[in-house]
Amino acid sequence: MSGPLTTAARVLETLHAASDPNEAEKIRNRVADDDVVIGVRMGTLFDAARWAVDLPEKELETLLEHPAYEARMSAFCILDFRARRKLADRERAALARIYLERHDVITAWDMVDRAAPRVLGWPILIGAIDGGVLDDLAAATDPLRRRSAITAPLWFIKKGSPEDVVRGLAIADSLAGDEHPRVRSAVQIFRKHADQRLRNDGEDG
């Protein structure tokens, strides 16, 4: 990559140039059956997203609408990289709205894990958007939305108060016994980190 990627076409060219049949076989094992797979190593995909962080919104939408897993994954990585910047609350809310409005194109658990904590959890933590959205996601029929409900509050553990961590644990409780393995594993991950955070807070106190 020789410079910033300013169009979806350039991002896709970069991804296709890095296509590897062996990588495609690995990716196929973790994505939806009807996803198109290009076959790009995650490190390469992250680098492409980093170069495309200032992609215009119309071009970002093109990636979100693309049938290939890597195109959509790169879009959610772009959102995550944007969320790492110093932003105004309204800008964080705008990123969260994109995540929520285009949750329909999330077809793999790693899209959730990459973007949900910063893109969704951060604006909820600071009150830029209503935290009730987590309850809505937790009640959804789509297991990836339920995974978002418990993955976004990982940001509460990282940057929130003990009370914020408890808010996340309430979501975990609501998903206890979920029938989907991707939701159950996310609940276990959250509880593990939440318990560690609360233990550390108790020791510091």
Rank of each mutant, 00 (worst) to 15 (best):
T6Y: 03
A8H: 04
A9Q: 09
A9Y: 07
R10V: 14
R10G: 11
L12S: 03
E13M: 07
T14M: 05
T14A: 15
L15F: 07
L15D: 08
H16P: 07
A17E: 15
A17C: 04
A18N: 12
A18H: 08
A18M: 14
S19H: 05
S19W: 01
S19M: 05
P21T: 06
N22M: 00
E23F: 02
A24R: 15
A24V: 11
E25H: 08
K26Q: 14
K26A: 15
I27M: 14
R28S: 10
R28K: 09
R30V: 14
V31N: 00
A32E: 12
D34A: 14
D34I: 08
D35P: 09
V36C: 01
V36R: 12
I38Y: 10
G39R: 04
V40C: 06
R41C: 01
M42R: 02
L45P: 04
F46K: 08
D47E: 12
A48I: 02
A48E: 09
R50T: 10
W51F: 11
W51A: 15
W51N: 11
A52P: 05
V53F: 00
D54V: 07
L55Y: 10
L55G: 06
E57T: 12
K58G: 05
K58T: 09
E59V: 02
E59F: 06
L60R: 00
L60A: 03
E61D: 13
T62Q: 15
T62M: 10
L63C: 08
L64F: 07
E65M: 05
P67Y: 14
A68P: 09
Y69W: 14
Y69A: 06
E70V: 11
E70A: 09
A71S: 12
M73P: 05
S74H: 06
S74N: 10
C77W: 02
C77R: 00
D80A: 01
D80W: 04
A83N: 06
A83P: 02
A83M: 12
R84K: 13
R84L: 05
A88F: 13
A88W: 13
R90I: 01
E91M: 07
R92Q: 11
A93P: 00
R97G: 04
Y99T: 03
Y99A: 12
E101H: 00
R102Y: 15
D104E: 15
D104A: 08
V105Y: 09
I106P: 02
